[in-house]
Amino acid sequence: MKNILILLVCSVFVLTTACKEEKKADEGPSQMEQVLAVHDEVMPKMKTIGNLVGELKSKVDSTAMGQQYEVAMKDLQNAHKSMMDWMQNFGTRFDQDDIRMKKELTEQKQQWLDEEELKVKALKEEINGSIARAEALLNKTKEN
């Protein structure tokens, strides 16, 4: 009888654990994974920003059009700086165990993650917007 009771308790434990693991798999990416996915999406665009800055820099002068190039160039440079600042700040707030989700986040770190999620989404808009404006300006001058 004692063996049956132990077997029953172990079975319930295994089933409960298995159900929890299955639930986690169905939940989709964690908030940390979503934040990192946005970073991973826009990080390769740093090369595009660098290329566009180089192209715009050669066109900056004192004319009205040259001033537009300068504004677009500074916009790109600010977006690049925002990415570097975001990564540095993120790295000071979270260690590798936090990032790899090997441990549960403290209440403070969860608040930080909420903040970082908003920041990285704004960063994505800043980067994509600065690239789109610079490319539109450069394409506009190629058409003329």
Score class of each variant (00 low, 15 high):
E125V: 09
I6A: 09
E33M: 14
L36H: 02
P44I: 07
M46N: 09
F13E: 13
S30H: 04
L15M: 08
D40P: 01
E70K: 12
Q31N: 08
L56Y: 05
I127Q: 00
P29L: 13
P44F: 08
L113R: 01
N139M: 06
K45D: 14
D75P: 06
L56W: 00
M84L: 13
L56E: 04
E27Q: 15
K20C: 12
I99F: 00
E125K: 05
Q31V: 15
L52F: 03
W112Y: 12
E117T: 15
K57Y: 12
A64M: 14
L36G: 06
Q96G: 02
G50K: 12
A132I: 13
A37H: 07
K74E: 08
C10F: 15
Q77W: 05
L15K: 07
M101T: 15
L8R: 10
L52Y: 04
L52R: 05
K20I: 14
L113G: 00
Q110S: 14
C19A: 14
K103A: 01
D114E: 10
M32W: 03
L56D: 06
L123E: 03
D85W: 03
V53H: 08
K74W: 09
T106W: 02
K109G: 02
E115F: 04
L52D: 01
K121T: 14
E104F: 05
K23P: 03
R100C: 06
I49F: 09
T141W: 01
D97N: 09
A18P: 03
G129I: 08
E27M: 13
K140C: 06
L123N: 02
